[in-house]
Design a protein around this nucleic acid. Sequence first.
DNA 1: GTCAATTCACATGAAAGAGACCACGGTCTAGTG
DNA 2: CTAGACCGTGGTCTCTTTCATGTGAATTGACGA
Length: 401
Amino acid sequence: MVTDLDKIFSNFEKNEIFEDKSYLQPNHTPKQIYHRDEQIKQIASILAPLLRGEKPSNLFLYGKTGTGKTLSIKYITQEILSRSKNLSFDLKIEYINCKLKKISDTEYRILAELVRRMGGEVPDTGLPTESVYTRFVDLVDKNKKIIVLIFDEIDQAVKKISDDFLYNLTRLNSELSKTKISIVGISNDLTFLDNLDPRVRSSLSEEELVFPPYNALQIQDILKMRAEKAFKKDVLSEGVIEKCAAYAAREHGDARRALDLLRIAGELAEREGSKKVLLRHIDESNQKIERDKILDVIRTEPKQFQLVLYSIINLVKQKNGPIFTGDVYNYYQDLCRTYKSDILTQRRVSDIIQEFDMLGIINVRVISKGRGGRMREIKLAINNKITEKAEEIIKEALEYG
DNA sequence: GTCAATTCACATGAAAGAGACCACGGTCTAGTG
DNA sequence: CTAGACCGTGGTCTCTTTCATGTGAATTGACGA
């Protein structure tokens, strides 16, 4: 036992792989951004009026995940802020990530977060939303300011709340006398604007910009640049970067994915005590990312969700073919009885199944069997190995939970 | 045989309830001068 | 008289239930050839 620990720690101390891992961390902002010159220039020229104290147009950025939207906007805001030291007014640029649950599940929370960023205080709950609005207005309108609000993954927020939240935001400007607010929306859903209230759409997207996916070569450039700083010399074996890039390019040119892949591969190599990152490590890394992501979701899911998923897994194993909503619900009911759990209505279970679909754990298709009715056809979207592991996790959670 | 109506087994939507959490303002209580 | 304890009201949030309406195609049954 002790010797094992010794081995682990000494491997770690030797640290023959990484020079500075932070260059591969997702939140690292590099000094130089490759292959986004055009976009950065455009954003900069749109936001430039800030430095003259004018309100810039609202801006909307599109692009799949990992195409550098967040990176570019953060880079530009930094540049702008660093040039704004001696301006005669307050310039505030706030970045809000709507994907983080605690912050942005509801209108109230987003607003509360805004107030806090502006230096005010709001309780987590208990106040009417309206009063948070007035608090925000009071706080912001005390002296002349220009505020840029950046909403990352704004589509998530709108899905959860509704678009009149955005309408309220765009309307805020008319309630403010001294301060002006600009909004930058970032979305990776290209159809997002189409389903928006027209009033909101026109005011929100005065300017639009699309971030195309990186191709494999561009990802290679990015990886090379970061890998140079992150890894020690000659640690990466031939073709590692190329392989990472290829994997990521397959996933709609997601550079973040490529970086994760490389970082995890490095960690795996390090853990093994290997002196080099091999091609094999990339494959393992790819699997590990996938597995960890899914198992983590499953682990943290509430009990009822686990029961439903457990039903699905078992049914798929039994029937060895597609299964349907009704099957799942029946099995689920039995399962609830054996574990003495409350039984949810079919309506609710239906929603739960849909959520698993969204998480990518199962694949769901609505089919009609004519007179046999209309239902979802459910398949597992994860491979057997992960499924088994998932089953174990759930079983454990159910017996000890 | 053809065509519209019917029917199945859910999907999908909207609204509202339950229970947990919490802020705010008013009232009560006890300690202080 | 005042600070702090206590309470009631009204707000949010999440997870659910209830009620209502929608839906795609196999089946049915009336109808005409």
